[in-house]
């Protein structure tokens, strides 16, 4: 099979002398310089200030609980099945309450493996996992990124703190 190479169209005269493009670029630089000098800075003073992230931003997970503190997750393993990064481990156990029947005995997300695609949230039939906007969960060891049930049920608090901070910055 013949390979057809599409050659780009030859440059026009104005393109060949480069001057308009250089001036255009210089103009953009000047505009930003003047804007910054005039006080309308583009830099955010993180961590004192926080950038406002969009509402569909996906970061650290949270596992909501019912009002009585009982975990919503029923360990159906949908999230661990759909997870493209194999970041979720779930083990189930019998719940004392026959109405609930099944609950997670062990639930762990490896946030280093997670690619924050949000499939787990989308697939969950019990609305038991969400991705929050909290992107501040760095630690200096790998174990710190293993989020078990005990931590995942509490990350909700961090979210509200973050949102309060965001509102203050605004």
């Amino acid at each position: 099979m013949a390979i057809i190479v599409k050659k780009p169209a030859p440059l026009t005269f104005w393109e060949r002398i480069y001057l308009p493009a250089i001036l255009k670029g210089l103009g953009m630089t000047m505009r930003h310089m003047i804007k910054t000098l005039a006080g309308g800075g583009v830099t955010i003073r993180y961590p004192e200030q926080h950038k406002r992230v969009p509402n569909n931003y996906r970061a650290l997970h949270v596992m909501p609980t019912w009002e009585d503190g009982h975990i919503k997750c029923v360990a159906c393993e949908m999230c661990s099945t759909v997870c493209p990064a194999n970041a979720i481990t779930v083990h189930a156990e019998e719940d004392e309450n026959p109405e609930i029947e099944k609950r997670a005995a062990f639930y762990e997300i490896d946030e280093l493996r997670c690619i924050f695609c949000g499939f787990c949230e989308e697939v969950c039939p019990r609305d038991a996992i969400h991705l929050t906007k909290n992107y501040e969960f760095v630690t200096d060891n790998r174990e710190g990124f293993l989020y078990g049930m005990d931590r995942l049920t509490k990350t909700g608090r961090l979210v509200s703190e973050l949102e309060a901070k965001e509102n203050k910055d605004r």
């Binding site: 029923v74 159906c76 949908m78 609930i100 029947e101 099944k102 039939p125 019990r126």
Partner: peptide, 9 residues
């Protein structure tokens, strides 16, 4: 329709 809890699913 409790497929998430059901072992048969």
């Amino acid at each position: 329709l409790d497929c998430p809890e059901c072992d048969q699913a």
